[in-house]
Design a protein around this nucleic acid. Sequence first.
DNA 1: AGAATAGTGTCTCTCAGACATTATTTG
DNA 2: CAAATAATGTCTGAGAGACACTATTCT
Lengths: 211, 211
Amino acid sequence: MSTLRLLVSVVVFRLHEETLQVLLCPSLQDWFVPLTEVSASESLEETAQRLLATLLDKRPSYLEQLYTYYDSPEKTGQAAVRVTYYALIPVQANARAEGVGRWYIVHALPDLPPRCREVLSYALRRLRYKLEYSAVGFQLLPEEFTLSELQHTYEIILGERLDKRNFRRRILQAEIIEETTHRRCGEGRPARLYRYRPDAVAEIKARRLFP
Amino acid sequence: MSTLRLLVSVVVFRLHEETLQVLLCPSLQDWFVPLTEVSASESLEETAQRLLATLLDKRPSYLEQLYTYYDSPEKTGQAAVRVTYYALIPVQANARAEGVGRWYIVHALPDLPPRCREVLSYALRRLRYKLEYSAVGFQLLPEEFTLSELQHTYEIILGERLDKRNFRRRILQAEIIEETTHRRCGEGRPARLYRYRPDAVAEIKARRLFP
DNA sequence: AGAATAGTGTCTCTCAGACATTATTTG
DNA sequence: CAAATAATGTCTGAGAGACACTATTCT
């Protein structure tokens, strides 16, 4: 075990210009999911937060551990254990990326090592899955948002169109957001702004296969 | 990182005498979730399988990674990263446990270190959760089983009673099991034996919070 | 015959999903 | 007033959940 390294990788998601994007770091030829080595007295989650602090100017609004991989010795002869996380970044809280990394649309990724590709694809699956039974989608939006913005968030991540009336009915029934007195003005009729209720029940039971 | 150890723990579940049980190993004062160090050229899952081979006389029918913990230096001054798994063992395939460990009913556990308690409670939560949206329950049963046995499996793990007619209707509708020609004879009317269909769709979509 | 377990059908109520028009603002 | 986006209600069909009796075997 003498040459084993312990690494933490974080898949960072944001919404930008109607797309879901991930942050990748450059290497000599291709790109990587950002990673760093765990240092002496630090927990895994602290390592992930430290890595994020070097990449972004704001803390993520959500951070969750995904999976732990064993990367067998490559050219270097170094074996490594890689604990992966994914992070969600609210809109308008992304900077610092220039120089240390670049945002890529999740459906138009550059060349990546196979393990990075695997990590990304699993992260996206978990994000989609989590979105369906929990309120994690709010973590990608600013504090106040319109119902249309929220619906677009869901459509972008799930990759399908949703019916406006059904969407509104269900999200309001869920009592998970509350009105504010503010409005967002733009091209058409101004939209009412909503806010996530921090006391909301953020998870529902999945429908059982056979109860 | 010089004194960091990489460990794999496995929470082993079985059904026995109408209870859900886990395998624990003895230490000087209390009990532990079985664990071992990852050795040089071995993957994490191989380590878990090797650990299971020292504890049981059969391979598990299911093995899934759960979570990775960082155990900060204890008395020993050794920090350790612990990758946890859970394993399901089919009924009637459990032995070797004497000497190396003991089976405990999940609701009547002995004294355990806090980290082991945390690992166990998370494993149980994940098992329950997985049971609700996938066909993982079959992994705890022998190859052929009656519908009553299957229903009891679900009742034991979920900790609640289920309606017999609804249970049968739904499991048969799901087309996830098939009849065999065999019957199980016992005290009352003999029951038809069923078998899990290996080609069955083993997961369903969760109901969405708000599609 | 009695005890024990297997096996079966119906009704109700909730909720997902499809669908089109009116309302309010800006330029 | 035209363009743009916000906001709103109804109907239908599927499925979850509650519920009680008959069938078959063994002793």
